[in-house]
Nucleic acid binder design. Structure first.
Length: 561
RNA sequence: UGGGGCGUCGCCAAGUGGUAAGGCAACGGGCUUUGGACCCGUCAUUCGCAGGUUCGAAUCCUGCCGCCCCAGCCA
């Protein structure tokens, strides 16, 4: 597209490379905790980590940060691999688990105790919090801070052996209870948790904390650049402290960047989990979810997500990207690739009075005007058709150039038709049918006399069309600012009641009969759609990925306001 | 309030002492058998604010102001 602008992380990596800081090595890692499904915010990190590695001839590891068994599950470890792979990234044989390092991590902890840099503390969780002090007051030292190395060693071994109850003791770093950085006030390194781990099962009842496990895992794997989000900036001194005390293979550089926020959406695993558990969505892959699996089901492609991540850049400033930016990325790709097809979402019956009863013509339609190699197809035309209700107005407003009484329009790839009569339901007054006449000379859509028509509308032949279900989506939340959603006392109250609209009486041209789940189309003049996982040959179901840009809607909106 | 970050167009984002890239959005116009796409054009005399240094400052200095993160035995 454009000469890429190098972000500050790529700049650092390039500088390190030319300074031979790590020789010619670049090694990154994507380190998810398997406690939920990946979302678009993770995609940003995945594209960054795998991208930086690939651009520099390095590798990127996939490592699970599975140090808290009470929140983690194999379902998540599997979905994460599927999603990363689907996005188009390959970790080769560099698949790791922090839990595979538990024994080494334990040995490092022993070393730290022997160095006098860690001790077993007997305070309760509440007491530790009290002793920690506040933002403005220093903390107080634990009564066990002066405990002998031998005693800590003995106690720590017995913690591992399961002699003590959950919460009764922890291993703490011996740093500085008066540090202005709260993370340095003798942080907890290990806690007792008698929970079965999804991989190590019951081999351990003590688990390392993030701050201890993460930096050491990075070092053990020879990571050169450890990229993480801004909230870990305060932890960097601790990351460095741990590695500085111990005899480790290398000392990776932690660099922080701003996490992604998207307007009208929430990227908090906690809230996404609430949406799933609370039944507000059909699951992690609900097409309204910002998860990778949700976007996939909605019809987003790996390419479009990668393009989006490239477009938003990487920086340190807190930012909220407009959802329109994401929509742009899928439209751009679909415009190039999607097969065009005609579909009517809200059918209005049209009878062409002067078209011979029983006659059917096969008209030629272009599959993709952006790509001639996609060829053409035949679409059946007959006396009774359906058009979109929105394409007819009994009393057309200014600038409306679709069908209206007495008006002539073009049926795409068909004929010019003129509306000569409107049939209404006697009771409701609702328009139930249009009576029209066609000009046989305009077959294919051109008038030999050079006559022009203002509007071209889509249609399907009533007798040949397939009856299908279409699901229209809108953002899940009403508020544009994600912070407002996250801080709302009640999640329910911020949900958009019209985030899903299911249309059960739609009609599509017969060429869609064999649409497989996942197949993507442009429904002409409407938007990009894909066959849903629920779709079957008996009952086709389509998701609207994103509507086409709609300048008519804009004109109407402006007129209304 | 202590510490750590960040403030460049409505939303992202380059720029790091030589006179404000680009994308999205928006708005005009052209073209059009998708009111789509495409094409052309408009869109920051100014970089949170105020001083200062300099021939020259978004970039350097000083002082304010605003926003985000940290007081889990979560990551």
């Amino acid at each position: 597209m454009h000469a890429e602008v190098v972000d500050f992380i790529r700049r650092i990596v390039a500088d390190d490379l030319s300074a031979k800081k790590n020789g010619d090595r670049v090694r990154t890692r994507f380190p998810p905790e398997p406690n939920g499904y990946l979302h678009i915010g993770h995609a940003k990190s995945i594209c960054l980590n795998f991208g930086v590695a690939a651009e520099n001839g390095g590798v990127c590891h996939l490592r699970y940060d599975d140090t808290n068994p009470s929140k983690e599950d194999v379902e998540y470890v599997e979905s994460i691999q599927e999603d990363v792979r689907w996005l188009g990234y390959d970790w080769g044989d560099h698949l790791y688990f922090a839990s595979d390092y538990f024994e080494q991590l334990y040995q490092f902890a022993i070393q730290l105790i022997q160095l006098g840099k860690a001790y077993v503390c007997d305070l309760s969780a509440d007491e530790i919090r009290e002793y920690r002090g506040t933002l403005t007051e220093p903390g107080r030292e634990s009564p066990q801070r002066g405990r002998s190395i031998e005693e800590s060693l003995d106690l720590f071994e017995r913690m591992r052996a399961g002699e003590f109850e959950d919460g009764s003791r922890v291993l703490r770093a011996w740093i500085d209870m008066a540090s202005p950085n709260i993370n340095m006030r003798d942080p907890v390194l290990y806690r007792i948790q008698k929970t079965t781990h999804h991989r190590t099962h019951d081999a351990w009842c003590i688990y390392p904390m993030y701050d201890f496990a993460h930096c050491l895992s990075d070092s053990l794997e020879g990571i050169t650049h450890s990229l993480c989000t801004l909230e870990f900036e305060d932890h960097r001194p601790l990351y460095d402290w741990v590695l500085d005390q111990l005899d480790v293979p290398c000392h990776p550089q932690q660099i922080e960047f701003a996490r992604l926020n998207l307007s009208y959406t929430v990227l908090s695993k906690r809230i996404l989990l609430q949406l799933v558990d609370g039944g507000h969505v059909s699951g992690w892959d609900d097409p309204r979810m910002p998860t990778i699996s949700g976007l996939r089901r909605r019809g987003y492609t790996p390419q479009s997500i990668r393009d989006f991540c490239a477009a938003i850049g990487v920086a340190k400033r807190d930012s909220t990207v407009a959802i329109a930016q994401l929509e742009h990325s899928i439209r751009e790709e679909m415009n190039r690739r999607a097969q065009r097809v005609m579909a009517v979402l809200r059918p209005l019956r049209v009878v062409i009075e002067n078209y011979p009863e029983g006659q059917v013509e096969e008209l030629e339609a272009v599959n993709n005007p952006e790509d001639a190699s996609m060829g053409t197809r035949k679409v059946p035309f007959s006396r009774v058709l359906y058009i979109e209700r929105d394409d007819f107005r009994e009393d057309p407003p200014r600038k409306f150039f679709r069908l209206a009484p007495g008006r002539e329009v073009r049926l795409r790839y068909g004929y010019f038709i003129t509306c000569i009569d409107v049939v209404k339901d006697e009771c409701s007054g609702e328009v139930t049918e249009l009576r029209c006449r066609y000009d046989p000379a305009t077959r294919g859509g051109n008038a030999p006399d050079g006559r022009k028509v203002k509007g071209t509308i889509h249609w399907v032949s009533a007798a040949h069309a397939l009856e299908v279900e279409v699901r229209l989506y809108d953002h899940l939340f009403e508020q544009e600012d994600p912070a407002q959603i996250t801080s709302a006392p009640d999640l329910r109250s911020s949900l958009n009641p019209s985030s899903l609209e299911t249309l059960t009486d739609c009609r599509v041209e017969p060429s869609l009969a064999d649409a497989e789940p996942g197949a993507q189309y442009q429904f002409e003049r409407l938007g990009y759609f894909c066959a849903d996982a629920d779709s079957s040959p008996e009952r086709l179901v389509f998701n609207r990925t994103v509507p086409l840009r709609d300048t008519w809607a804009k004109i109407q909106q402006r007129a209304a306001s």
